[in-house]
């Protein structure tokens, strides 16, 4: 691996750590009565204070049965609402800051107080992290991997909730973003990042691949080298849990190097390790 490549990965790793640090800091400050809007603002302010000026998307916060996207029909329902947190309620913080031109997109699932069902969902996400990495290394088509994740969820007894995301994606490509003094966003998504995604989509359309990892035909291709923000999202009767982190896919012939998780020192991974 070249030095430039290593430096680039380090940049992504740093911003992903920053994003997870933000999620953990905000999660620790959540109390009964806090609204989704307040939680989203806390994330925004925390990251602004640490130099974040642009976003892939503005921070989201979902509480209670909104973690499982119960009754979601239109994309506007993803935006934070006045729903207040209560004891025992699950929550998800989803944030995607751009820092020094590097993008991260992370999802943090937590719960206010003990909730055994939520713990079970979180524990069951581990199998999905392993399955995705294994099948990406096998260079299976993204659509097939999507279907395998779907089947595993059904076998576990859960519903696939990433299907509710735009285009039903389980993952999307992320990339470096040019730093501009003015970085507007539309519908919560940074214009610079959207531009990058649109460019990828255009190129991909010509070459037969897509930056969106979906259940549809346009994702019927082997994994494309690059950085993918992978976000399997489980739902079970009003309780939802997800993780989101960066998967690095390269064109190396060595299976180990052909795909790997950017960072293995993340809250959900540490949690699984502690449980063992």
């Amino acid at each position: 691996m070249t030095d430039a490549r290593t430096a680039e990965l380090r940049g992504f790793k740093e911003v992903q750590r920053l994003a997870y640090a933000c999620a953990e800091a905000v999660a620790a400050r959540l109390r009964p009565g806090v609204t989704e809007r307040e939680a989203a603002r806390m994330q925004r302010e925390w990251l602004r204070a640490r130099g974040v000026r642009d976003w892939f998307h503005l921070p989201f916060a979902w509480f209670g049965d909104r973690t499982a996207f119960a009754g979601f029909r239109i994309p506007l329902q993803f935006f934070p609402t006045g729903r207040r947190l209560e004891a025992g309620m699950p929550f998800i913080l989803d944030l995607a800051p751009v820092h020094r031109g590097f993008t991260a997109d992370v999802g943090y699932s937590g719960c206010l107080g003990p909730n055994r069902l939520h713990g079970k969902l979180l524990a069951d996400l581990e199998a999905h992290r392993e399955l995705i990495l294994r099948e990406v290394r096998e260079r299976r088509s993204l659509r097939e991997i999507y279907e395998d994740v779907d089947r595993l969820m059904v076998r576990q007894g859960y519903a696939n909730r990433h299907r509710a995301y735009p285009f039903g994606v389980i993952a999307h490509k992320i990339d470096r973003v040019k730093e501009r003094r003015w970085s507007p966003h539309v519908f919560g998504f940074g214009t610079q990042s959207l531009k990058g995604l649109a460019g990828d989509a255009l190129h991909g359309h010509r070459d037969g691949w897509s930056p969106l990892w979906s259940p549809y035909r346009f994702s019927d291709h082997p994994p494309k080298p690059g950085l993918w923000a992978v976000e399997p999202h489980l739902g079970f009767r009003g309780t939802g849990a997800k993780f989101e982190e960066i998967l690095v896919v390269t064109d190396s012939r060595d299976p180990e190097q052909s795909a790997f998780w950017l960072d293995d020192d993340l809250p959900h991974v540490r949690r699984w390790a502690e449980a063992v």
Binding site: R116, L117, K120, R155, Q156, G157, F236, R237
Partner: peptide, 9 residues
């Protein structure tokens, strides 16, 4: 699996 989740809910 069904029994396990049933106990949780």
């Amino acid at each position: 699996r069904t029994a396990e989740l049933a106990r949780l809910i």
